[in-house]
Computed example of a mutant assay.
Amino acid sequence: MTDLLTPQDIARRTAAAADAAVAAGRDLGLTVTDAKVLYELFSVVVHLAPAPVVARIPTVLPSYADLDSLAHRQRAELDVAQWLADQGVPVIPPSPLVPAEPVRRDGFSMTFWRFVEEDRDRAPDYAANSAITADLHAALRTYPGRLSYLSAAEPRFITDALASLEQRPDLVEPADLDRARREWRVLEPLVRSRAAFEERFPGIDLQPVHGDSPPANIFPGVDGDLYSDFELITLGPVEWDLAALGPDLEAAYDRRALSKGMRPLDQDVLRFVNAVGMLRTIAALTLAPQLPALLEYLEPAIAQWRTAPFAGGLADLP
């Protein structure tokens, strides 16, 4: 495979994103003399020190994503995070020092957030994080913003990726691609159509959900845990936020949900969201040229998928 970015390529991309964030921050009136990259994977996250502001710049994206579509998603994220902060929900809010709008600079679209000191001595407690995801769902139920149904599933990404992977046997085995396509024919109608979902899963309410595994996106601040990273905020079943976490973390969520008068997770819906999540994993192989580390990261999940029921067993459900 010759089109994988090298470590040097990725370093240049990270530096370009950080430079764009520094320039944009200064244009907005921030004093930035000691910028530091805090994190990089699908996005580059930069502390614009000494300003108490963090810039997040998405850098690994599907081929069809452009600055307009990215900004649309970023506006929704900024809106929901600010709304939650206004309700007193513990969340990393947009920075109050700059307008809460995506900013374009040098081919990037970025957002600006309040800097929060991380408690680096505390290991993640995923059971506790799964439990307080029920608190987040309770808070999000009254979010007034308009959201699209299951946009976090990114159906275009899956469809386009399954088509392009036909030309990439170096990324996916033909048998895996064949199975993924057949599963998508079962699952796609339920992902694209709210009416189809509601017919298949009667009585399952839809509401605003985080969209990107909140138990893995709870930030350990020195003054307490904060919800973060609402890039995939969407309308969907609460099960979407617990996909692929397993029975122990599902049980932690259920205990908290029941204590708050909320319904427990539905096992059939969990099978559905887990199956869709696995197809997003297959689709993510198309991002490997931009982020080669994905290949090693995704392989264990793909190996597990090969032994799982077809389409999560959904084709056999009544």
Rank of each mutant, 00 (worst) to 15 (best):
D135K: 08
A175C: 08
R12T: 13
Q207E: 10
F310T: 07
A71W: 11
G277E: 10
G211F: 12
R12Y: 07
S109I: 06
I302M: 08
D229T: 02
T133I: 00
S63L: 11
L30T: 07
V172N: 08
D212K: 08
G107D: 04
R141P: 00
L61V: 02
N217C: 08
A180R: 05
D254G: 03
S130E: 02
F219L: 15
P94N: 13
D268R: 15
P144A: 09
S95C: 11
G312P: 09
L165D: 01
E299Y: 01
E166G: 15
R168N: 08
E166S: 14
A131E: 00
R271F: 00
F108Y: 15
A35D: 12
P7W: 12
R56I: 02
A128E: 12
I92Y: 01
T234K: 04
L285H: 11
L78Q: 12
A175Q: 13
A288D: 05
S109M: 06
E199C: 11
D225Q: 09
S259A: 15
L61N: 04
V186L: 11
L162F: 01
S43G: 05
S63W: 09
A251Q: 12
L5P: 01
P144L: 08
T281C: 07
D135G: 03
L84R: 04
P289V: 10
D170Q: 09
P144G: 04
P300S: 09
L5E: 01
G261S: 02
D254W: 02
L70K: 07
G145T: 10
E231H: 05
L30G: 04
A17E: 10
M262S: 06
R122M: 09
E166F: 01
V37D: 07
T286S: 14
Q304T: 13
A257E: 05
T286P: 01
A244K: 08
G224T: 08
S213A: 14
A138E: 13
D79Q: 13
P124E: 07
F108E: 05
Q87V: 00
